[in-house]
């Protein structure tokens, strides 16, 4: 449905997007993830024809956005970071305007009322947009993107600034939309990607640093397993004994103390499960284990690691930073 090839956007000597390529199939729901200023919005703006690329090719539904912009734009519904709303119009007037603007051919009343009920704006159609709450403005923005029943829907940071209840509502809505449309969603909220998207593309400094299924991305980046273990036993001795176990790469005492127990982060080699060995060791020494939990396998830490790696931060330094973060 969407094909991006060697896309480059340069401002002077600065590369906002530096040679990225990806393909998105019909019905996919893809998260575009990256720190602020990574090039997410630029990529989306090029996909929607708002900006022209310096070089590279973008096709939407087979139409090249630079050569056949009208046909390509007809395939896309776009919600920019700031919803493009006219405050002096009522919701109904605005949606009618967008309907005309897009040259929509679907039956007007039916189509608009369907969208209004999907985004739950029924009670607000007569209200002026300037008097709506932020969450409701966002809904109007989403409704705007849905007009004309476009095959591809692109959301730029759709849940930013919403309260938790609204965030959940918008995420549910996106999941519903994904059944009938191809959805691209940009965000730096990782939980959003985890709950909504099937696939995630991570961008940093204008380059793609990962493009994986959401469930796989954690596995691809993990170079070992890490567990946080709380053991009742003499600190020095326990640390030494744990680090001598087969398959253990490192043991770091976190310094947390709870009565007579100390916490350690144990990192094992890739593919080695050290949990049994740790249990056996502790039970043979009569050290009670008060807790054992995996750490650093959520998307958040994967993301930070990937971004750090692409920024060229040394692994050791990186590790310390990571641990500081985890301790917090």
């Amino acid at each position: 449905m969407i094909k991006v090839q060697n896309l480059v956007k340069r401002y002077g000597t600065n590369y906002a997007v530096n040679d990225i390529s990806f393909e998105i199939g019909e019905g996919e729901i893809v998260g575009l993830l990256g720190p602020n200023g990574a090039g997410k919005s630029t990529t989306m703006n090029i996909l929607t024809g708002y900006l022209a690329a310096t070089s590279g090719e973008v096709t939407v539904g087979g139409f090249d956005i630079s050569k056949e912009p009208i046909a390509a734009k007809r395939m896309i519904g776009f919600l920019p970071e700031q919803p493009p709303l006219y405050p002096d119009m009522t919701v109904k007037e605005y949606l009618n305007f967008v309907y005309d603007l897009k040259g929509c051919k679907l039956p007007r009343e039916e189509h608009l009322s369907e969208i209004i009920s999907v985004v739950r704006l029924n009670e607000l159609t007569g209200r002026l947009i300037k008097n709506l709450s932020k969450g409701n403005k966002q809904r109007v923005g989403i409704a705007e993107a849905l007009i004309g029943d476009p095959k591809v829907i692109i959301f730029d940071e759709p849940t930013i600034g919403l309260d938790p209840k609204q965030v959940i509502a918008v995420r549910n809505l996106m999941r519903t939309l994904a059944k009938r449309h191809t959805v691209i969603l940009s965000t730096h909220v990782l939980a959003e990607v985890q709950t909504v998207c099937e696939r995630v593309i991570i961008i940093n400094k204008g380059k793609i640093i990962a493009d994986e299924k959401t469930e796989n991305i954690v596995k691809t980046i993990e170079d070992g397993y890490r567990y946080r273990v709380k053991v009742c036993g003499p600190q020095k001795e326990a640390e030494g004994a744990l680090s001598r176990l087969v398959g253990v790469k490192s043991v770091v005492s976190t310094g947390d103390r709870d009565l007579d127990s100390y916490a350690y982060v144990i990192e094992s080699d890739r593919g080695v499960d050290i949990r049994k060995a740790v249990f056996n060791l502790c039970s043979s020494r009569n050290w009670a284990i008060l807790g054992m939990e995996p750490v650093g396998t959520d998307l958040e830490s994967v993301f930070i690691r990937l971004v750090d790696r692409s920024d060229g931060i040394a692994p050791e330094k990186n590790k310390k930073r990571r641990e500081r973060r985890e301790d917090k």
């Binding site: 734009k73 007809r74 896309i76 776009f78 493009p84 603007l101 897009k102 040259g103």
Partner: peptide, 14 residues
Amino acid sequence: KSKTEQLLLTAPIT
């Protein structure tokens, strides 16, 4: 200023 031009520029019009 109000960023509404983004709507016009991404709409299927010339």
